[in-house]
Design a protein around this nucleic acid. Structure first.
Length: 160
DNA sequence: GTTATGCAAATACGA
DNA sequence: CTCGTATTTGCATAA
């Protein structure tokens, strides 16, 4: 409903790449250049970035360059990462009353009786692509987005 | 199999 | 031209 067009856009982007396909796509393809592939940042890198973020939510270009070099990432990527981190915070902090805390009391419960418990145990195999990105070049590692809490696969490229 | 939803990167725009 | 923010876009997962 909102962001749904995984396929529709796909052809638009890659359609003309392979073939001229002059009969269709022209307006959209003409204006927008190809986007970069989504760079997946490794979990460890994210952690490092996070730490720096706490120290300096707004590092200067020099710091970013330094950090980027240390982590072996592109300067742009690091810059963007910080930007997104700030946005995320903004989205979570302001709505104090509505987003942060709405659970308090609630201690009852017990849940069920299940004696075992290992419900949240997913046996995934993130080590490899869950579903190929659509068969085509693999610049980086697409991979698992984030199941919602920890657990992220891991990898990132080491190119360069 | 589809659609819907969320998060996160990349892009576009403005300062 | 660089930097910051807003918006779009991409992909992974849930329903």
């Amino acid at each position: 409903m909102c962001k749904l067009k995984p396929l529709l856009q796909k052809w638009l982007e890659e359609a003309d790449s392979t073939t001229g396909s002059p009969t269709s796509i022209d307006k959209i393809a003409a204006q927008g250049r190809k986007r970069k592939k989504r760079t997946s940042i490794e979990v460890s890198v994210k952690g490092a970035l996070e730490q720096h973020f706490h120290k300096q939510p707004k590092p200067s270009a020099q710091e970013i360059t330094s950090l980027a070099d240390s982590l072996q990432l592109e300067k742009e990527v690091v810059r963007v990462w910080f930007c997104n981190r700030r946005q995320k915070e903004k989205r979570m902090t302001p709505p104090n009353t509505l987003g942060g805390e709405m659970l308090d009391g609630m201690g009852h419960g017990h849940y069920g009786h299940d004696v075992h418990g290992s419900p949240p145990l997913h046996a995934h195999s993130p080590a490899l692509s869950p579903h190929a990105q659509h068969g085509q070049h693999a610049p980086h590692a697409p991979h698992s987005q984030h199941p919602q809490h920890g657990l992220q696969s891991a990898h990132t490229l080491a190119a360069h």
